[in-house]
Amino acid sequence: MSRPQDPHRPFFPFANPFKMMLPKGSYLSPRLLELLNNFEDALAERFRKLKPKDREEVLSLSWMTLAMELLCQTHTDIKSIITKLELPVCDWDDKWIDLYLDNTVKLLDICIAFSSELSRLNQGHVLLHCALHNLDASPSNQFVKACSSLDGWRHHISSKNRRLENCFGILDNLTETLNLPKVKKSAKGKVLMRAMYGVKVVTVFVCSIFAAAFSGSANRLVDLQVLESCLWAESFVDVQTYVNGEIRNIFSSGRVTVLKELEAVDTSVKKLYPTIQDGVGPIEVEALQNCTSDLGKRADMLSQGLDLLAKQVDGFFRIVLTGRDALLCNLRVDGGVPDPMREADNVEGRVVR
């Protein structure tokens, strides 16, 4: 006899952290309230901007680039809030610092995995370029080489990147730590923790989508339930419902590739391959030229899209790294900690360029 499905667990399984963080009757000065509201209003607008106007935009490289750009802006905002709060590091609770440092290491690892995958996908452009070069050479004996290059490309894009395997475990851990540390008697600390909550929500959301798209699996796509009192909650739920729903539809269709520009190239390859494999007669030359031209255009769009997205991922990496360095430098002034620049060099050295 089958068991009834367990109800969906609420996001906060034990307690609402904001009952501790912003308890009823807690007071925030007008300045602090304005600072928090401005941050949350900006985050709400970013979620609205992130909702695609058309379902075809979902998992396009241009949309993913926008998502990473908005994520970078949000992480830049939290650095600005920390500055405006004028909350010295010596006033930070040890739990905040430990959590922040632990989470930033995880984000850097995710960035390294994403950069590795984007680099791997872009390497396939060399195989496409070789195929196109051989097709332009005209003699039919070059078709064999073109077929070989296209075979190599299809094998390359269908292979798996082991660097992505750890992303889902990291995202699970980041999701668990959304339940924030308790804040005692510090209005500034409460503002900081609530703002960081928003940053972590958008981070988990965007990185979850990237991990699903790059790994080819929507099974671990994250569906977050967030605190309704946040000014960005409604717009977040709206975009999460729409985007995650569309991604699951894409995966359920059985597509080999889910990135839109990658899928477009794959479609051109599938159309071109049988033609050059069977040989081209005089009547089919024009059709071959059209197919080759179409593949060339789509391959260029894919390569350009991957380059732009890679730059945004690299920018996110550097924002997280510089924020971490700033905190470590301040801690080093207060007490002995490892040299942050040496640590930065070690982390950067792991990035796949």
Rank of each mutant, 00 (worst) to 15 (best):
residue 2 S to Y: 11
residue 4 P to W: 00
residue 5 Q to K: 15
residue 7 P to E: 07
residue 8 H to P: 06
residue 17 P to I: 00
residue 19 K to T: 08
residue 21 M to H: 06
residue 21 M to T: 15
residue 28 L to V: 06
residue 31 R to W: 06
residue 42 A to S: 15
residue 43 L to T: 13
residue 44 A to C: 09
residue 45 E to W: 00
residue 45 E to N: 12
residue 47 F to D: 10
residue 56 E to L: 12
residue 60 S to F: 02
residue 62 S to K: 15
residue 63 W to L: 15
residue 64 M to N: 09
residue 73 Q to E: 11
residue 77 D to T: 04
residue 80 S to T: 12
residue 90 C to I: 13
residue 91 D to L: 11
residue 91 D to K: 10
residue 92 W to C: 09
residue 93 D to L: 07
residue 107 L to F: 09
residue 108 L to G: 06
residue 110 I to R: 03
residue 112 I to N: 11
residue 115 S to M: 13
residue 116 S to L: 05
residue 117 E to W: 05
residue 119 S to E: 08
residue 122 N to Y: 04
residue 123 Q to C: 11
residue 131 A to E: 00
residue 133 H to S: 12
residue 135 L to W: 08
residue 136 D to T: 07
residue 138 S to K: 14
residue 142 Q to G: 09
residue 150 L to V: 02
residue 154 R to M: 14
residue 154 R to I: 14
residue 155 H to D: 13
residue 155 H to C: 09
residue 157 I to K: 10
residue 160 K to L: 15
residue 165 E to F: 04
residue 167 C to R: 03
residue 168 F to P: 05
residue 175 T to M: 11
residue 177 T to C: 08
residue 177 T to I: 13
residue 177 T to L: 11
residue 179 N to A: 12
residue 182 K to F: 05
residue 183 V to T: 14
residue 186 S to G: 05
residue 188 K to V: 06
residue 190 K to E: 09
residue 196 M to I: 06
residue 204 V to A: 09
residue 206 V to H: 06
residue 206 V to N: 13
residue 209 I to N: 04
residue 220 R to T: 05
residue 220 R to W: 00
residue 221 L to F: 00
residue 233 A to W: 00
residue 235 S to N: 13
residue 237 V to Y: 02
residue 239 V to A: 13
residue 246 E to Y: 02
residue 257 T to K: 14
residue 261 E to W: 00
residue 268 S to T: 01
residue 272 L to Y: 02
residue 275 T to R: 15
residue 280 V to H: 03
residue 285 V to I: 13
residue 287 A to R: 10
residue 291 C to M: 15
residue 295 L to T: 01
residue 296 G to M: 00
residue 298 R to E: 11
residue 302 L to H: 01
residue 306 L to T: 03
residue 307 D to F: 11
residue 313 V to K: 06
residue 317 F to W: 03
residue 318 R to E: 13
residue 319 I to Q: 02
residue 320 V to H: 07
residue 320 V to F: 07
residue 321 L to V: 06
residue 324 R to Y: 08
residue 330 N to R: 14
residue 335 G to H: 13
residue 337 V to I: 15
residue 339 D to S: 06
residue 343 E to A: 12
residue 346 N to M: 07
